[in-house]
């Protein structure tokens, strides 16, 4: 009941925001060339989906984002597990990671273009490079922070190395890994759009950029709305996954 009220309240805030937007547009407080009302943006969205290729662009962006995110996630978790579970690896590789990590991923785009050209491979490389950091660092942290006592329990039970990873280290690091996955998804979406803008790949980035160049602001807003929705759905999906996987973190009756 209470949860329902909260949800209604948050919906009301969204509706209020859209209403203000509509009023601002109707009274032409901002030139309609730059700011279409939500009605026009919605019409452009529907039109783009039905009559134009907006759906293809959306699919393109989803594909770029998910591919890059998946590659980054797998590589980040595997590398993070290797580095995090060994003190020596942490000491050896740590400084290099600290140098690479703060590099803005957009700064490696020219490099990626030089290597891969204006291709989907370039986008994949850039997105994966940018999105791997939250995954890698949170996994390293998760594996390094496993309770040492649990390793002693594992020794006492003669668990194999593989069993220790699967039954103790990985579940223990899971909350950190999920946080990394969530951050990584956001980064992947941002970089997917940037790559589409720069390399002209099929996607919402390109759609938004072209709409802006031709002063088709309703189309521009349609693209932005879709990007927002994409990020929202992605976060929601991870939220649900997290709640499923981390039931044990929400005790129903703590002592």
């Amino acid at each position: 009941m209470k949860a329902l009220l909260w949800r209604l309240a948050s919906l009301a805030v969204t509706a209020g925001f859209v209403a203000i937007w509509q009023i601002v547009a109707d009274f032409k407080l901002v030139s309609p060339v730059f700011l279409p009302g939500p009605d026009r943006a919605w019409a452009a969205l529907v039109h783009g989906m039905v009559a134009s290729n907006l759906a293809t662009k959306l699919a393109g962006t989803i594909e770029h984002m998910l591919e890059g995110w998946l590659v980054a996630s797998i590589a980040g978790v595997v590398l993070g597990a290797l580095i995090g579970s060994s003190r020596f690896m942490r000491a050896y590789v740590g400084p290099t990671l600290e140098f690479l990590r703060p590099l803005p991923a957009s700064a490696v785009i020219p490099l990626a273009i030089a290597i891969f050209g204006f291709s989907p491979a370039m986008a994949l490389g850039v997105i994966a490079f940018g999105a791997i950091w939250p995954m890698l660092l949170s996994t390293v942290h998760g594996f390094a922070a496993v309770e040492p006592r649990l390793y002693e329990v594992a020794r006492a039970l003669h668990l194999s190395r593989w069993q220790v990873i699967a039954k103790i280290a990985l579940p223990s690091a899971l909350p950190d890994i999920l946080a990394g996955l969530r951050l990584g998804l956001t980064v992947a979406l941002i970089l997917a759009v940037v790559c589409e803008m720069i390399a002209g790949l099929d996607g919402l980035g390109q759609w938004v950029l072209l709409a802006a160049r031709y002063f088709r602001s309703p189309d521009l807003f349609a693209g932005v709305i879709l990007l927002g929705a994409l990020g929202f759905v992605g976060a929601l999906a991870l939220d649900i996954a997290e709640r499923r996987l981390l039931v044990w973190r929400a005790p129903t009756n703590s002592p």
């Binding site: 309770e147 006592r149 649990l150 002693e152 329990v153 006492a156 039970l157 003669h158 668990l159 069993q163 039954k167 103790i168 579940p171 223990s172 899971l174 981390l246 044990w248 973190r249």
Partner: peptide, 27 residues
């Protein structure tokens, strides 16, 4: 078998009571 003083650290918080006992059986 070793019974540690800090039971809170020696149990797997992500496993239920049954799951924690199961760990030894799996081993």
């Amino acid at each position: 078998a070793i019974v540690f003083q800090d039971y809170g650290k020696a149990l797997l918080p992500w496993r239920t009571a049954a799951g924690n006992v199961s760990l030894a059986l799996e081993a």
